Simulated scan of single mutants.
Amino acid sequence: MSIPELFAVNDEGETANRLRNDASTICGVPVEEQVPMRSARLEEGKLYRGAVASFVYTDRLRGIPSTGIELIPDASIGGEENHAYTYWF
C-alpha cells in the first residue's frame, strides 16, 4: 500500500503550478505531523497532515493557476479499475 498523493489542479482537473518538497513546511504543518515520505514509516492511529502549495506568475499568461486539489488514492486498493479520483474546489 502506498500513500495517496495530492496535486494542485484547475477547475477542469488539469495539473496546476505546484511547489514540491517543502510545501507542508511552507504551509506551516509541523514536521512531526507531516505525512512521511515512505509508507513503511506510517504509524497506526496517528493523524498526519500535509499541504499542497501552488503559485501564479505575475503576468498570469504562463502556467495553470490552482483552483482545487486532486487526491489520487492508492491504486492497489480495489484494483486500478475500481478507484476514483477525488477533487476539492
Rank of each mutant, 00 (worst) to 15 (best):
S2C: 10
I3G: 03
P4R: 01
P4M: 01
E5L: 12
F7R: 08
F7Q: 06
N10T: 05
D11C: 08
E12A: 12
G13Q: 09
T15W: 04
R18Q: 15
L19H: 04
L19W: 06
D22T: 10
T25R: 12
I26W: 08
C27F: 08
C27K: 09
C27S: 13
P30V: 06
P30C: 09
P30F: 05
V31P: 01
V31H: 07
E32F: 08
E33I: 01
E33N: 12
P36H: 07
P36N: 09
M37P: 04
M37V: 13
R38W: 14
R38E: 15
A40L: 13
A40Y: 10
E43K: 15
E43Y: 00
E44D: 07
K46L: 07
K46G: 02
Y48D: 01
Y48W: 02
A51V: 02
V52M: 00
V52G: 05
A53Q: 04
A53Y: 02
F55E: 01
V56E: 13
D59Y: 06
D59T: 10
R60P: 02
G63Y: 02
I64C: 05
P65D: 03
L71M: 15
L71C: 09
P73T: 03
P73I: 05
A75Q: 15
I77N: 07
G78M: 10
A84C: 06
Y85P: 04
W88S: 07
F89S: 08
